[in-house]
Design a protein around this nucleic acid. Structure first.
Lengths: 108, 108
DNA sequence: ATGACAGGCAACCCATTAGTTGCCTTTAAG
DNA sequence: CTTAAAGGCAACTAATGGGTTGCCTGTCAT
């Protein structure tokens, strides 16, 4: 079972987010597919995918000599619920609230 | 203006998430406050806070010789909307969908 | 069976980063 | 004015991480 940390750290890298994007566009791609057009070796991509798998953001299935990769939305949802939910308890656009708070410090 | 990457990478570290948690419980804490009970030097905490500030996840205000830190929910919201929203277009609990997809590969 | 294709494994390199120590600046209090 | 408290700055260290190269394994086609 991946921890919160696995997920956050997997999402921290732009290359990995890009891979997730590509899978979002076309799900079930092989390693070779995912390498196309990237300025990276196959091995680098494989490592990234391994981390995404470890974080359970991607589920991979070996199919013959290929390996299909599928995006898994569940961990992102959990993060969203545990984190965004928590920080949004007061109200969703806390922007103005914070600004008012800070500006209020002055003329108090 | 912080980039997506700033935010993701700021969130990637457990210590920084912990700091955000503490600010979520008690907003407006000083550096000294935030150091209490942590197995880290003040300088380490200061660095983390600097990164959170750079990502705009925390807004700090100098008040006399103290520096108050306030959590800012806006970037998290943006991430949530841009990312979770994107990946949840189909439906919020894509869990079963994915499972069915994978299991479908077998008995096909 | 043999060759080509898709991927896995392991060692290594360089850059980043989390953390430290040591010292300097600013502000409040006696 | 002096001193202690709250931070800031800078240099350094150790570990992590993204990426590479080189080679091995397994699978499909001929």
């Amino acid at each position: 079972m991946p921890t919160d940390d696995d997920i956050f750290r997997a999402l921290a890298d732009p290359s990995r987010r890009r891979l997730l994007d590509r899978l979002h566009v076309t799900d079930g791609q092989s390693l070779g597919d995912l390498c196309e057009g990237l300025a990276m070796t196959r091995q680098a991509v494989a490592k990234h995918l391994a981390m995404l798998e470890a974080a359970n953001l991607v589920v991979a299935v070996r199919q013959g000599r290929e390996k299909r990769h599928f995006i898994n939305r569940v961990p992102i949802n959990e993060i969203a619920e545990r984190w965004i939910g928590k920080f949004d308890q007061p109200r969703l656009s806390a922007l103005s609230a914070l600004k008012q708070h800070l500006e209020g410090e002055d003329n108090d």
